[in-house]
């Protein structure tokens, strides 16, 4: 798959505690629809992309999102929208956004940070946001737009992983895929990182319990259409659970494009980087000695820098 990552702008209606955007002062609120479509065309023409991830900031705040999606799908791309899902709670907005688009080529990924509204809203810095996102995702079902609920595992929510999985199934039935993933501390200061970072060994029992529930749920109720554990190393869990792990962030993108406020001119422009490598890979010495290093999703560089060498454990051939 040739994939491109497109940030349409950095406006956002949430204020997430672990937002990875970092220093927003040099980043433009939004790029024009015309400029963004031109960047997509460049990706199709020069890099032969067949998939695009549309992100931000919050991409649903961009008034040209419908036109950008239409352009992508009409040109044969599959598009994944990374969104907090908040605006989808407005049924008319959601209907208007997706009407006339090829639904089979679009999917949505939204993070829910906790089964408990108070914690989710604390993370997003937006009162009532969990309820709006839940309703927004239910509105996607009515529009036949497939979606994935994602949880980024932190010290605040790792104990609730089994309950979180039950909660997602309770809310969305078989209509939501599920992704449980490790956190990238990129863009966070050391104090904030200490506040939310949780070691892989602490995550282990809770993640395994959550995956046990997923298996039981699949046998008894049909389960989620897809379950993925991402951005965590294989040594987080017993090898029995590796079948859930996916190589999502390790590796390269074809093109990364995002708007910046150019300091020299004061004008906003879209800057692109080609052949970008994600900061998720094999960084630890233990990893280099591990017999499954080639199969491992890896860890975020920021996690390596925070936890140090003792965070992972090499597997050896049996």
């Amino acid at each position: 798959m040739n994939s491109m990552y497109l940030a349409v702008g950095y406006s956002c209606n949430h204020h997430c505690f672990f937002c990875p955007i970092g220093d927003k002062s040099r980043k433009a609120k939004a790029a024009s629809t015309e400029d963004l479509i031109e960047v997509v065309d460049r990706g199709i023409r020069d890099d032969h992309i067949d998939h695009i991830t549309i992100s931000g900031g919050e991409p649903t705040l961009h008034p040209g999102l419908h036109d950008i999606l239409a352009h992508c799908t009409e040109n044969g791309l599959r598009a994944t929208i990374l969104t907090n899902g908040d605006r989808f709670h407005d049924r008319q907005f959601t209907h208007d956004l997706f009407e006339s688009l090829d639904h089979s080529r679009i999917s949505v990924v939204s993070a829910i940070h906790s089964p408990y509204p108070g914690l989710h809203d604390h993370v997003t810095g937006s009162a009532g946001s969990q309820e709006r996102t839940i309703q927004g995702l239910k509105n996607l079902i009515a529009c036949h737009i497939p979606f994935t609920v994602k949880q980024v595992i932190s010290r605040w929510n790792f104990r609730d992983l089994p309950e979180f999985v039950r909660f997602v199934y309770r809310e969305f039935g078989p209509y939501s895929a599920l992704t449980l993933c490790g956190m990238d501390f990129c863009g966070m200061n050391e104090a904030d990182t200490r506040e939310v970072a949780v070691s892989y060994s602490e995550i282990r029992p809770n993640l395994e319990k959550a995956l046990d529930y997923i298996e039981e749920n699949r046998e008894t109720r049909g389960g989620f259409p897809l379950v993925t554990v991402a951005d965590l190393p294989l040594c987080t869990v017993d090898p029995y659970y590796w079948k859930y792990f996916a190589m999502v962030s390790r590796g390269r993108l074809k093109r990364y494009s995002a708007p910046y406020s150019a300091a020299e001119t004061g004008k906003d422009e879209i800057r692109s980087s080609e052949e970008v490598w994600n900061d998720c890979d094999i960084y630890f010495q233990q990893c280099r000695e591990c017999c499954v290093k080639d199969q491992c999703p890896g860890t975020w560089r920021s996690a390596f820098e925070h936890f140090g060498e003792t965070a992972v454990k090499a597997f050896h051939k049996f």
Partner: peptide, 16 residues
């Protein structure tokens, strides 16, 4: 074994 996540048998899909 690792690469696509897991789905119900009838609906096997690649995560990426």
């Amino acid at each position: 074994m690792v690469g696509g996540g897991i789905s119900t048998g009838a609906f096997r899909m690649e995560a990426a």
